[in-house]
């Protein structure tokens, strides 16, 4: 394993130092490992807090800023943040209008956010929680921890963040966040595993002509293994998996997201196929993102995330956003 780190133990705090140095628009609380907007809480605005294990950069800290998150809590690599950290963030962003917790549906994230919400409530902050669970690879929700939260997290953070910026009340912001999640689906494919620095070796092994279908964003193996094929075929597998759950139709937001180690040129190839296939199936891609947004360290592969837009969601998607990793309109 070769990693550009000083040590596995200091990785997250070293990276936070880097973020602090690179982005004057952020205030990085190194002690508590919380990334805030530099300008602090705005009175009357609902605060948005997200968090999760590190290793998914730019998620979440790269999405802190105007029109998106108010604070992000990075945990250790692939390990959800701890309640103290989340409480610190929650108190720090409360402008009196309450705070929305955006939680990806993993046992660890859910438990730690739950504790933090309770503790924050004790300290007088009103907290609402939205659970993101867009990953169609996990089917049987009665007998599992439920669907994972993956790419839709970005959509929820962006759209709920835009609404919060308008001064909308907590219940409204939570409502739109849930709506985005309900309208979003993801499916991921890995060409290679990733290597968690503290573990020192790849999370699984894949042959020269094998891929993993239905992966999450934590280097875990997927639901099944398949033979490597052309981009066109693999893209169709992903779109079909999504379509089996929520048939594509109407105006659609699509993200072709790289898992961290895949060159951008390949992501554009995948996007071309995804867009064409969705068109064939009757949906129209009206908004899109192509790039590395919700990653899994150095994993090669991609994830397709779709969101069936409404007029409101499109408007909120188009609203100005100014964060290190997503920026338009100002």
């Amino acid at each position: 394993m070769k990693k550009l780190i000083n040590s596995a133990g200091s990785l997250v705090s070293d990276a936070l130092r880097g973020m602090a140095a690179a982005h004057p628009s952020l205030r990085v609380d190194l002690e508590n490992a919380v990334v805030f907007r530099a300008e602090g809480a705005r009175p009357g605005k609902v605060g948005l807090v997200s968090g999760g294990g590190s290793g998914h950069e730019p998620l979440h800290a790269g999405f802190v800023g105007h029109g998106m998150l108010d604070a992000a809590c990075p945990g250790e690599v692939f390990t959800s943040p701890v309640p103290d950290q989340l409480v610190e963030a929650t108190k720090g962003v409360d402008g009196g209008a309450g705070v929305l917790h955006i939680v990806k549906n993993y046992t660890g994230d859910v438990l730690n956010f739950e504790m933090a919400a309770e503790l924050s409530g004790d300290e007088g902050v009103e907290v609402a929680t939205v659970l993101v669970n867009d990953d169609v690879a996990v089917r049987d929700s009665l007998y599992t921890a439920g669907r994972r939260g993956t790419g839709a997290t970005l959509f929820v953070e962006k759209i709920a963040g835009a609404l919060a910026e308008t001064g909308a009340p907590l219940a409204e912001v939570a409502r739109v966040a849930r709506e985005v999640n309900e309208r979003s689906r993801s499916f991921g494919v890995a060409l290679t595993p990733c290597t968690v620095p503290a573990a020192g070796k790849p999370t699984f092994e894949l042959g020269e002509t094998e891929i993993e279908l239905g992966i999450g964003i934590h280097g875990e193996p997927g639901r099944s293994r398949a033979a490597m094929g052309e981009a066109r075929e693999i893209a169709r597998v992903a779109v079909d998996a999504i379509g089996d759950d929520l048939p594509p139709s109407g105006e659609t937001l699509v993200m072709v997201n790289g898992m961290g180690g895949t060159p951008l040129i390949e992501l554009y190839v995948v996007f071309a196929e995804v867009e064409a296939y969705l068109r064939e199936k009757g949906a129209t891609v009206v908004r899109s993102l192509v790039g590395n947004y919700v990653t899994s360290l150095d994993m090669q592969g991609f994830m397709v995330t779709t969101c069936a837009l409404t007029g409101e969601l499109t408007r909120l998607w188009d609203s100005p956003v100014e964060t290190p990793a997503l920026r338009w309109g100002r």
Partner: peptide
């Protein structure tokens, strides 16, 4: 630690040993 992390790598996310050790 390493054994626990390996078990977690097989069916999880390769951090259980590191988590408990920390």
């Amino acid at each position: 630690r390493d054994h626990l992390t390996e078990l977690d790598a097989a069916i999880g996310d390769a951090d259980h040993g590191t988590n408990l050790d920390r």
